[in-house]
């Protein structure tokens, strides 16, 4: 079964139908530039792994705290029942305070559910950004192959390189998929029933 794919895997899948030129060394996309692009992708992948790891740990903590809170709540209720016949006012007051605290912890945990969804949003954005980097690299390589740069010299060459970069950026923009996440914060999203 397919679990959440790493950013790298998602990009590999997206790129599967895009032909990659054999000769990766060129004027626009030099070996150094290629290495630089690889570095960016590696770092985006590292961010994804760190965020996923942190989210997994937070979810484990969340579930544990929530179980503890529930058992604390039940315990206070049980003590309250036992103390009630005696009618000890200070004990009952303390237990009421305990119930208030348990209720507030539960409310906070509910709010944490919304925030804990950040990992999913971040992973999708990282995959989108990695995809953009990959597309730009491929377009630079493609234009390199079509450029016939060796025949051009001096200013003509410089002008053509600028043109090549602009063309690569334009094509990359057009090939770009729609951004999957537009949220700017972790506020609850809209709901619409059809």
């Amino acid at each position: 079964m397919a679990e959440k794919q790493s950013v790298e895997d998602q990009i590999k899948n997206q790129m599967v139908d895009t032909p990659v030129p054999e000769d990766q060394s060129g004027v626009l996309c030099t070996a150094e530039a290629d290495e630089y692009f690889m570095g960016i992708k590696g770092e985006l992948n590292q961010i994804d792994r760190l965020v996923s790891d942190a989210v997994n740990n937070l979810v484990i903590n969340f579930r544990y705290i929530s179980r503890l809170t529930k058992s604390h709540h039940d315990m206070v209720l049980a003590i309250e029942k036992m103390a009630a016949p005696e009618g000890s006012k200070p004990i009952l007051e303390l237990l009421d305070k305990q119930m208030d605290i348990a209720g507030k912890i539960e409310q906070e945990l509910e709010m944490a559910i919304t925030s804990l969804q950040f990992g999913d949003l971040v992973t999708q954005l990282l995959a989108h950004t990695t995809h953009q980097v990959e597309i730009l690299k491929i377009e630079l390589q493609r234009i390199d192959r079509q450029g016939n740069w060796k025949k051009k010299v001096g200013e003509e060459s410089l002008h053509t390189i600028h043109e090549g970069i602009s063309k690569a950026v334009d094509v990359a923009k057009n090939k770009n998929k729609r951004k999957p996440v537009v949220q700017q914060g972790m506020q609850m999203g809209d709901i619409e029933l059809f």
């Binding site: 559910i113 919304t114 999913d120 609850m188 999203g189 709901i191 029933l193 059809f194």
Partner: peptide
């Protein structure tokens, strides 16, 4: 996470009952 009108319309046309944008609030 998607909230664009175009994709929402696709969902609606395909028979979705409703559209909830992440992050969700448990009570809602």
């Amino acid at each position: 996470t998607e909230s664009g009108d175009e994709i929402k319309a696709k969902g609606r046309a395909a028979g979705a009952t409703g559209w909830l944008v992440k992050p969700f609030d448990p009570k809602r």
